[in-house]
Design a protein around this nucleic acid. Sequence first.
DNA 1: ATTAGCACTCAATCCACTTGAGTGCTAATA
DNA 2: TATTAGCACTCAAGTGGATTGAGTGCTAAT
Lengths: 345, 345
Amino acid sequence: MSDNTSLLDIRKMRILQAIIDDYIMTAAPVGSRTISKRSDMGLSPATIRNEMSDLTELGFLEQPHTSAGRVPSEKAYRLYVNHLMDSAKLTDDEAEYIKRHLDTRVHEVGEVIRQTAKVLSDMTKYTSMVLVPQLSSMKVKRISLIPVSDGTALAVVVTNTGVTKNAMIKIPDTLSPDDIEKISKLLTAKLDGHRMSDAIESVLPMIREEVGEQADAVCVMLEDIERSMSETDVEVVGASNILDYPEYSDTAKARSFLTEVETGNYLQKVLTDSSDVEMSVRIGTENDNPDMRDCSVVTVTYKAGGKNIGSMGVVGPTRMDYGKVMAILKYMSSSLSDILSKLLK
Amino acid sequence: MSDNTSLLDIRKMRILQAIIDDYIMTAAPVGSRTISKRSDMGLSPATIRNEMSDLTELGFLEQPHTSAGRVPSEKAYRLYVNHLMDSAKLTDDEAEYIKRHLDTRVHEVGEVIRQTAKVLSDMTKYTSMVLVPQLSSMKVKRISLIPVSDGTALAVVVTNTGVTKNAMIKIPDTLSPDDIEKISKLLTAKLDGHRMSDAIESVLPMIREEVGEQADAVCVMLEDIERSMSETDVEVVGASNILDYPEYSDTAKARSFLTEVETGNYLQKVLTDSSDVEMSVRIGTENDNPDMRDCSVVTVTYKAGGKNIGSMGVVGPTRMDYGKVMAILKYMSSSLSDILSKLLK
DNA sequence: ATTAGCACTCAATCCACTTGAGTGCTAATA
DNA sequence: TATTAGCACTCAAGTGGATTGAGTGCTAAT
């Protein structure tokens, strides 16, 4: 991505910023007079017009039609996010709000995740999403196999971070409940401290001799479990918020947005793809999903014990309040990380 | 509820039915000419008009304004559902579709529930909802307590029907993992075959002496577990379908519908309230939630082992295709019951 | 009892006109 | 030379009157 700043002198930048700020608030094309009055640069509308004309030529502004004002282009938002935006600080009220609503006395990770998504969407008024913590990267502390019926058992994996996950698995009919308990204990003993993802390659060989003839069965079970563990799951809240924004007053557009969000596929993809960068911003067509081509998606990662274990984000119209959203996300990220780190001690 | 049929002669009924059928399809006020042509009763528009005038007076039809056609009232839908509607049979294609999509080789209840909701919404094109099976009414087969971290453990309850549910519970710091395992085995032994809801009253006393000084701790744990078990959870799919219906082309209306559905509170209430009647239909203002006052909600229960264990339903505009919806729900109910009965053997 | 005929109603659509916010260009100005 | 005032031009969004057409209700004829 080329750095566009060099093309723009300081005045053009300030004007562009003013236009974007205004457009983010009003969703209406902004004209030269508005900027002349609102910005304290003491320039006449005519001068602003000239600059706007240049900015249009450079691809930062667009005109819906000749006699409307100008609308920021995606390129403009990109510049805004990278250079212009004054990364808003949260007000005390906002920080307080987050603290209060996140500090419910919950001791279950799923609950914390849901609550986080709720707070995120309440504060931003956009759609929020939180990826549940990824287990595959955590170390196993315990594996319990619980017989459910002939041929099936529930595997419960507890990680060193205290996150748990279930997997319903098939078991050979030949195994008795006692066998299962034995295997369960053995797995816990051997896997303790290892990553689930390493289980099959590095740990299975060690177990092999001890389980004897059941080695193959155990192997299949482990594969089953690992598959379940690497399933990700995403909590989405506030999808219908999108209807509050005029750009989605067209029902068909709202429909395709909501359908996409409801399945959650794309959002999940974005969150997993971004789960190694501290903060990511996808503007409009930077989203490769056509139904999301006039949304922006902002994500951050969250940690537990100093290690990234998940990500969360916000989806809204391209004209979203990036400054506010990014500030909130940053704050929420560290709050959630704190809570989880404590919770998962 | 008084039975309105007596007020209407056979001809009025047929005309009303024709009007409702037409309105369900078109969502547009229907006029006398349409009915005269479409119904094979060989009556002129003028005659129909006279009858329509009577039906309006009786409260079965409404006029948006003088020169529009007529629209069925809620009272009309009620009559339709109770007496008029020819309870549509599913086509072979539809039955086939359900069979194929529900028969995925899944062996986990949650998966089946999600799939059911999906199929239900795909077929009806409305919003679907499925209440996950209620554990409190099932008999316990096994309880496992799995230590997660100091002070917390995961309780996994397996019922005789094979449904499982987790609850994260607090445990006294004084309990060692060995203690926990002992309690876990004891609970399984004592609770096996009992309903969770009876656990505290009838089973706890029997355990009391065996656990000695930990009796109070066990009691608290059981309460914790029981609370978690009686939590209901509802799977909602296809909320955005509502946007395809002209009565929700107004964004504000769609917004309030979607927000209500997103929280799921009301739907959950309806499903639990209806979980003892085979089929229930709530039309328009029969819903006590103001945001749902121009929707209808249809629910059925489903069983496992001959016993009601949950319910599911469909939400759509009052002008929904009751015949089709009810036929689909009936069929799905028995399909799901079959699957669960087999699955949970 | 039914229907043909007719006057009446009223939302929806169309069209011509106006309004007003905004542009782009040019000539005057500092 | 950069800025600005002035002005003609554009175009979406109203505004208001006329037209249309689907529908009704009533009355008189069948």
